[in-house]
Design a protein around this nucleic acid. Structure first.
Ligand SMILES: [Mn+2]
Ligand SMILES: [Mn+2]
Ligand SMILES: [Mn+2]
Ligand SMILES: [Mn+2]
Lengths: 227, 227
DNA sequence: ATAAAAATTTAGACTAGTCTAAAAAATAAT
DNA sequence: ATTATTTTTTAGACTAGTCTAAATTTTTAT
């Protein structure tokens, strides 16, 4: 008979946030710089360097002075778990507590650090194991696996194409509120009626009903899959 | 037209925990000592003194060197809000996520610090505004008001009295698990069939069905109201 | 009333995380 | 191939919260 003691040296919120930031930067670029992390974390490069040393000591990142960083398997696992928790909590807030999709992010930033495997497993179950969050972003499973939707920008489609909205690029409340007001949401069918050559703005129909104009800037922040 | 900016200098988790600890100590004694706080917070008296100075600066407590502390209205409000959140989260975990009453406390210790008025209002609504938590403790409303059940200890009742269980004194998982196993829970009707004069242990019946013996020590940790 | 014991506070040190300013390294421009 | 610019790291300092050890105050016991 064996006794298991939970020694696990919990990671601080700060460490978790750095790992998440690095993960998200790695989604865009293959190498992540000190300055990029500083900007994302709203902190100074000197502070980042200090933290990188600590994360490297703990084997969460690969780091050599001046060479940028990448995540180790261990670090990526932690980052994906934080992202999983963030997105499940966002889904919970929208599905069960009547939050709007523009209201959930800040609360989820706090909830993602709650440390309880049972809690997150039960939330997942309660929500019936959703695969995507309220913004269309994939929710990693307990092993860090997730589905990628190979979507494209609405701004890249040609006249007369039809598509389904699957996500957003800009996650700001301002943009999300604009979409609400324009009655454009995830899962909606969007048809491009016309593209104004002067400014690339689009005339679209949503769910075969309302026809409206959106700017190219807006179209560049809407992710879709072609029907 | 006015612009409102949320300046509110958020209180740290640590400050919140100190205020909650002081509140709970004040429920028992009218004056709270440095050592009592140190014991409850699992810290040293010197650390407590440092924190008391800070809490007094912020006008959360009344504090004079060597004289013990009490809460100001401001401090009590914060403490009650933390307790409200703690108990609502415990209720949520039990009612919606299939947690047992012995599993909720540690998670609620984390969740109670999540800072979102809307979140806690919605959880309250979602649970249909419960008045008591899974352990029978009252849940303060948004203004800090709550119902007190004037209950007594089961160990204080006489032979042949009947009562309803309303709470527990000891909240430890070990005790709660014992009650589960003995099939004694909140709301159950308990009748005292006999009191063994030798050791004050009790023979009781629960919900008119199962008859069993419990020690005086157990009876001293069960809160009831007489039927 | 005085001495002993207990409780509390102060002093000084430590860690995590942050900052500014200065030094060092890498990159870009001539 | 130097020089200039940008990026990154180091050095030193600050805050929140904690600790141990020592000093001080209060309480208890004689
Ligand atoms: Mn988010
Ligand atoms: Mn999201
Ligand atoms: Mn509790
Ligand atoms: Mn409780």
């Amino acid at each position: 008979m064996y006794i298991c003691i939970k020694l696990i040296s919990m990671n601080s919120f700060t460490e978790e946030n750095y790992l998440k930031a690095i993960y998200k930067l790695l989604e865009k670029e293959s190498v992540v710089t000190t300055n990029a992390i500083a900007e994302k974390m709203n902190t100074k490069a000197a502070s980042v360097t200090d933290m990188l040393k600590k994360l490297a000591d703990k084997k969460f990142i690969n780091y050599q002075k001046y060479q940028g960083v990448s995540l180790t398997a261990k670090g990526e696992k932690i980052a994906l778990n934080i992202i999983r928790k963030h997105r499940l909590w966002e889904m919970f807030l929208v599905e069960k507590l009547n939050f709007k999709w523009d209201e959930v992010h800040d609360v989820a930033e706090q909830l993602e650090h709650i440390d309880s495997d049972k809690l997150i497993a039960q939330i997942d179950h309660f929500l019936n194991f959703p695969k995507f969050d309220p913004h269309g972003d994939p929710i990693p499973d307990a092993n860090g696996k997730f589905h990628i939707q190979k979507s494209q920008l609405l701004s890249e489609l040609k006249k007369n194409s039809a598509c389904i909205m699957t996500g957003v690029v800009d996650h700001s409340p301002a943009f999300l509120q604009y979409l609400d007001q324009a009655a454009i949401g995830l899962g909606d069918e969007i048809k491009i009626k016309d593209i104004v050559s002067f400014d690339k703005s689009l005339q679209i129909s949503v769910n075969k009903k309302n026809s409206l104009f959106i700017s190219n800037e807006v179209a560049k922040n809407i992710l879709v899959i072609i029907k």
